[in-house]
Amino acid sequence: MANALHIVACAGIVPDPLQTLEPTLAPTGPAIRNEMVLPAMLDPWAACALYEAASLIAKNPGEPQNPSKLWLVSLTPKAKLQQVMMTVAQKLSFELVPIDGPIGGFTDAHSTAAILAETIAALPGLDRGKLLLFGGWESANRGAGVTLQLIGERLGITDQFQGVDQIELRDDGPFEVLERVEGGRHQVSVCAGPPAVLGWATGNLPEPRNNPQIGMDNMRTIMPVLQKAKTAALDTNSLRYVSATLPAQQRTTRVVKDMHPEAIAQEIVEWIGKDS
């Protein structure tokens, strides 16, 4: 297939899920205590989007004079992004477009989307007619699932898909998309072609292995752009937090040892049958 693709993947960074998170009050509102020093990773569903993007481009490289391209746009503190890039950059080739901004999930999605849309619209060499805007369908911090949609609206893209697990390009330009819908099913749609927005769920690809050679090639361009990253401040759009608290998590657990499997089964069946 000769049609080149211009894929822009949007991804933030989030704390490693094995970390304990504790809310605290910063001058700007609620925050996670010490979030800047917690080990971080690329937002998982956005990472799936990035892997799917790289795979799609590998299958559809375009032509030498008109190649397919992959940008990774990230609005996040650049020092933290640099740490995360040490591993992500070893997995696949992309052009990083960093915007230095605040960390965390308490920020307003509308402001984030406005800055990302402005940045994408100004990407040198981006052909909007070829654009597939990728990202996770929800982040692991704010988890609102609205940022991509808002960017899409700002860029005038009205073919949008969320909870995507699969895309298949057809030879003559259209593509088929599978989106998650209720009851563990997929809705199948056919779109005439780019531009389109795809908010990814897990997809079908494993995490690519680290390849130090790809890492070295990527880092040559990543380090200079990180240094030059523009800084963005985020508007709250009147979003105010009345409270942000940890739920009472601890249950009193009854640990049952040495009970015969038959007796356990009996107890479970009774419990299932009881109205709660």
Binding site: L21, F106, N141, R240, S243, P247
Partner: peptide
């Protein structure tokens, strides 16, 4: 005032907006 969870159900927040 509306309640929602952040950080994948780890933190419960109550929010409000004037907009």
């Amino acid at each position: 005032e509306a309640s929602r969870w952040l950080y994948r159900q780890r933190i419960e927040a109550v929010i409000t907006r004037d907009a």
